[in-house]
Every structure is written in structure tokens, then in C-alpha cells.
């Protein structure tokens, strides 16, 4: 009981992140539909971002928006570094999704299907 309490209640952000990571990977590997695979990648990335942000959060503090004037009270803010990283990570993730979707569109035009198994069974267009 203690184990479950420690794992899922105290560290619920981390536990949720790990569960989402697993869901993402399984979606990526098991589904045959290309769009679902891309969704799996998205879930995987989101889980990492959740993990990152939750590590930087300190309870009862707020986002690091520093006023232009006046003294800065560091003890009122959460750790800003993970937030900065997540923004970078989101940019990477968005460009990845766009790239993968564009490729999927091309593949759909060439093969007429989104099912990865059918695509692998078909020989390339010219051959």
C-alpha cells in the first residue's frame, strides 16, 4: 500500500508522465495507421514535457515573470529552466509533426493507403 501511495499519489506527475510515455510508445509501435503513429509520437513528446515541467514546479510559487522595476524576490518563483526547455522542445515537436504529416501526405498520394503494412507489401511505384 505504501508503495502505491508513494508511486502514484506523492509522485503523481512523474507516474502520469511515465504512463503517457508508455502509451505513446505502444501507439507508435502497435498501430498500423500512419496518422495514429504520429499521434503516438505526439503523446510521447507531451509526456516528456509534463515530466520536465513537473520537476521545475515548486508548490505555492508562480511563473517566472519578473517585473521590469523593483526588487526581484527569487523565492516567489518556480525554477524557470525547465519551462525554457519545454518551449524549445515544443518547437522541435511541432516541426517534427509537420514534417511527418507532410511525408505521410506524399506517401498517401503515391500508395493510396495509410496502412503501413500494405505500404510495405507494395513494391515501389516504378518497379
Amino acid at each position: 500500500m505504501d508503495f502505491i501511495h508513494n508511486t502514484f499519489i506523492t509522485n503523481h506527475f512523474e507516474a502520469a508522465a511515465m504512463i503517457l510515455f508508455g502509451i505513446g510508445i505502444v501507439t507508435l509501435l502497435v498501430h498500423r495507421n500512419l496518422i495514429k503513429k504520429i499521434i503516438g509520437l505526439g503523446i510521447m513528446d507531451a509526456s516528456i514535457f509534463l515530466f520536465l515541467v513537473s520537476q521545475g514546479y515548486i508548490s505555492d510559487r508562480r511563473a517566472t515573470i519578473v517585473p521590469a522595476e523593483g526588487p526581484i524576490y527569487y523565492e516567489r518563483f518556480i525554477n524557470p529552466l525547465p519551462g525554457a526547455l519545454v518551449i524549445t522542445g515544443i518547437v522541435v515537436s511541432v516541426s517534427l509533426t509537420a514534417f511527418a504529416l507532410a511525408l505521410t501526405l506524399r506517401l498517401y498520394k503515391k500508395y493510396g493507403t495509410l496502412d503501413i503494412n500494405e505500404i510495405y507489401l507494395m513494391r515501389g511505384g516504378e518497379e
Binding site: 510515455f21 504520429i38 509520437l41 510521447m44 511527418a100 511525408l103 505521410t104 506524399r106 506517401l107 515501389g124
Partner: peptide
């Protein structure tokens, strides 16, 4: 070419999984 698109998507998705 169709086969390079196929290979490219496989490469991209697995390598992004690696980055994850």
C-alpha cells in the same frame, strides 16, 4: 521515389523515438 519516402518515414519516426 515511393521507396525513399517509405524508408524516410521509418527513419524519421524511429529516430525521433530515439530522441524521446
Amino acid at each position: 521515389k515511393p521507396e525513399t519516402l517509405k524508408a524516410g518515414l521509418k527513419y524519421l519516426s524511429l529516430s525521433i523515438m530515439g530522441s524521446g
